[in-house]
Design a protein around this nucleic acid. Structure first.
Length: 768
DNA sequence: CACAGGTCTCTTTTT
DNA sequence: GAGACCTGTG
């Protein structure tokens, strides 16, 4: 029988349209992975297409792995020749074969963002640019954006039109690229851009891959950036068999260069595209979908669609606002514990989602106290922990002698008495001689003369050489063990910080496990370069183990593509979610992006959605007072259980738990009360007043944050006045109204057009 | 050269 | 609150 019998009409339509461009608009939970796998099986089984000619691209290894697994199960024999991979690993595989055409060595290393940062720091130092005035992060951001738009340093120089800042940036970009190249390294964005360069510069290489990938599928298409779009366009240009799947409502990676126009304008680029909408949702209850639909309806310029389900209304949504982030965490912990005790749900059925990684800390604290197993996805990436980076730097040094950054990192780890002065001298010497830093180390006697310093360096070099000589015939596992033994790394950690050493040593053990797993999965002897490459391209989400019975804690971004029976959306507060910048910044599309993020969050829930907000929260060491998120207001009240509670809920009552010392005792929130949060009665009456206000949610809370410039009283200008803005120049005030928290002022600028902004932030100066 | 202690900056979100 | 960075001391 056909492979397609499990599909609904629309899914069937999408799965059987094989030739030509296809756009599948797949709403949240509409079974797109099922469509993609069935489509693949259909291509092979029914259309006689060779698996060899199929390319499926995803964004994360996890998604790629899942798709691979499902295709394997469905297709069986031959499925291993289908190329299923992420954008980045696809590019790495291609570049490993051909990058020599672009003047790089095929054994290039991949720099993560920490590496990029370190390299940028060096670059700026070399160019003698004051990092107080120009932050390295600023340059890195611009460079990343440029690469996502396929712009070279030369392009940027041309676009600078003599502007000093822009010229400087173009120069830094060029210098940064030179450094990368001399380290034989590529950063994340280079992986895509260099592949495009390869294809445009060497048509015969492109043709080779066009012939191979006659049928292309791209998942999460709404998250592609211009470079990725171009990559796909080039590959598909010959046969035009390109099928993209995505949901414009789930486009949440603009900050990473994702261009929502790629999906919105697909039909313009491919006028003969077949478009299929998948609107039946198999995941969530009607109540949850209604909430999601209601929120996203406030965005403009979306592809028209409405999710529906035959699952029934389901449970109402719960919303609770509490006073502190600690109470919020308690509430979540208690709810999870209760359901577990009642046998209603396992820990793994729960996910707690939040906007920023920093929010996980308090949640973790409470989960530990309650003894509930949990897993945090993301935050500090496993591979960017210091101990792991140290080991990796050893491996990189052994693998690629040209990676100066790695060499410098470990030269004095553990301490060998080789300090900054010595490094500086070797560095200068290497630059003068135009050799790699490691080469400079080898010839240190020429730079430093004979002496203690040179002896220390040479014994380091000898050690590395010994490791190198062994790489060929021992496993990576043994190599790592030998490194750790030789440098007595664990002893160093213990000596350095006896308290923190335990965690770090555990991390090293986990790293060893990953090494072993990697070597097991690769049949022949796994090469060190391959291992380093895999490590460089893992995302946090790739490491989640769905079988462990743990509550999942993660950001909304990490949650995309996942589903859970019970979801907690925490920290739903204006200023946090939507974030401060999206509310008060001058780019209105940012608020829409936040709203899409909210939509993603809501649609993760299958059966039960609980939304929480706190009235106060520590942000960057200071207490902030936030109103309930405007997105909550967009959800119809009838979808909530009972009245939407704005007043303080009674504290959750605990069983007799040693760690809590009884319920509702605020004094234990030492940090919070110590920094000047009003005591409970004050907060309560304040909030009652707020709840009674005409505009319940936007109410009158004025940020008590030190130095906050919002809500700073009435502006000294009025409608008709001429004012000056720091960025937009001069203009005339056309409207001025009370926006609740701050004055909303509209200005018709002479050159910049009409802008609406908040007075506290616009810092308008009245002109006489 | 190493380390301790102080100051400053910063946050979205991630391959 | 954490991490990066700077400065002074041994």
């Amino acid at each position: 029988m056909s492979v397609l019998e499990m599909l609904n009409d629309k899914q069937l339509e999408a799965a059987t349209q094989i030739e030509g461009p296809v756009l599948i608009l797949a709403g949240a939970g509409s079974g797109k992975t099922r469509v993609l796998t069935n489509r693949t099986a259909y291509m092979i089984d029914e259309c006689g297409i060779s698996p060899w000619n199929i390319l499926a691209i995803t964004f994360t290894n996890k998604a790629a792995g899942e798709m691979r697994e499902r295709i394997d199960r469905m297709v069986g024999h031959g499925s291993e020749s289908i190329w299923v991979a992420t954008f980045h690993s696809t590019c790495v595989r291609i570049l490993r074969r051909h990058i020599d055409l672009l003047g790089y060595d095929n054994s290039f290393t991949i720099y993560d963002s920490d590496d990029s940062k370190a390299l940028m720091k060096e670059t700026l130092k070399r160019l003698q640019i004051d990092t107080k005035q120009y932050s390295e992060k600023g340059f890195l951001n611009r460079i990343s954006n440029a690469k996502n738009e396929l712009k070279t340093p030369e392009d940027e120089k041309k676009d600078a039109f003599g502007d000093f800042g822009d010229e400087l940036y173009a120069k830094v970009y060029g210098e940064y690229q030179r450094s990368l190249k001399s380290n034989n390294a590529l950063d994340f964005d280079d992986l895509i851009m260099k592949t495009v360069e390869l294809f445009t510069g060497f048509p015969e290489v492109l043709d080779n891959y066009q012939e191979r990938f006659k049928y292309i599928m791209v998942d999460e298409y709404q998250d592609t950036n211009t470079a990725q779009f171009e990559l796909i366009r080039l590959l598909a240009d010959k046969y035009k068999n390109i099928c993209v799947v995505g949901d414009d409502d789930q486009s949440i990676y603009k900050f990473r260069g994702a261009n929502i126009r790629n999906i919105l304008d697909f039909e313009k680029v491919y006028p003969d595209a077949k478009v299929v909408k998948l609107e039946q949702n198999y995941r969530s209850t009607q109540n949850i979908l209604d909430a999601a639909n209601a929120v996203i309806a406030n965005n403009k310029g979306r592809k028209d669609k409405a999710l529906w389900t035959d699952k029934g209304e389901g449970e109402k949504i719960t919303f609770v606002q509490v006073d502190t982030a600690y109470e919020e965490a308690d509430l979540i912990v208690n709810s999870i514990r209760k359901d577990k005790r009642n046998g209603e749900s396992d820990y793994r059925d729960n996910a707690v989602l939040y906007r920023t990684n920093a929010q996980s800390r308090i949640l973790e604290e409470k989960f530990v106290m309650a003894g509930i197993p949990y897993a945090v996805v993301g935050g500090v990436n496993f591979y960017s922990r210091r101990e792991i980076k140290d080991i990796l730097a050893y491996l990189k040094t052994i693998d690629n002698a040209r990676d100066d950054l790695a060499v410098k990192r470990i030269l004095n780890v553990p301490k060998r008495g080789i300090g900054a002065t010595t490094v500086g001298k070797i560095n200068d010497f290497s630059l003068r001689e135009d050799i790699d830093f490691y080469e400079g180390l080898k010839r240190c006697e020429e730079a430093l003369g004979r002496g203690k310093a040179s002896d220390k360096i040479l014994s380091f070099v000898d050690m590395i050489q010994v490791f190198r000589s062994k790489v060929e015939y021992i496993s990576i596992e043994d190599l790592v063990k030998e490194i750790l033994d030789t440098i007595e790394y664990e002893q160093m950690l213990l000596l350095e910080d006896p308290d923190g050493a335990k965690d770090r040593i555990e991390n090293i053990e986990e790293f060893m496990n990953k090494v072993i797993a990697f070597e097991k999965q690769t049949d022949e002897k796994a090469s060190l370069s391959e291992f380093l490459e895999e490590v460089a391209l893992v995302a946090d989400i790739d490491n989640v183990d769905p079988d462990a019975d743990k509550v999942m804690l993660m950001t909304l971004h990490s949650a995309k593509g996942l589903e859970f029976p019970k979801v907690f959306l925490s920290g739903m507060e204006d200023g946090l979610f939507p974030g401060f910048m999206s509310i008060y910044g001058d780019d209105p599309t940012e608020l829409e992006e936040e709203r899409r993020l909210c939509y993603v969050g809501i649609t993760r829930a299958m059966n039960k959605l609980t939304i929480t907000a706190s009235r106060s929260r520590m942000v960057r060491g200071e207490t902030q007072y936030n109103n309930v998120s405007r997105f909550i207001k967009e959800i119809p009240p009838m979808l909530f259980s009972g009245r939407v509670e704005l007043e303080r809920k009674p504290s959750p009552t605990y069983g007799v738990e040693r760690s809590y010392g009884g319920g509702g005792d605020y004094s234990r929130y030492g940090t919070a009360s110590g920094t000047g949060i009003p005591a409970r009665p004050v907060a309560t009456s304040q909030n009652k007043a707020r709840a009674a206000a005409a505009k319940p949610f936007i109410a009158s809370a004025i940020s008590l944050q030190k130095g906050a410039s919002i809500g700073g009283g009435t502006p000294d200008y009025k409608v008709g006045d001429r004012v000056k803005h720091i960025k937009f120049g001069e203009g005339v005030v056309t409207s001025l109204k009370d926006g609740g928290r701050d004055w909303e002022v509209t200005v018709d600028f002479d050159t910049a057009g009409t802008k609406k902004m908040f007075a506290g932030f616009a810092k308008l100066v009245k002109l006489c």
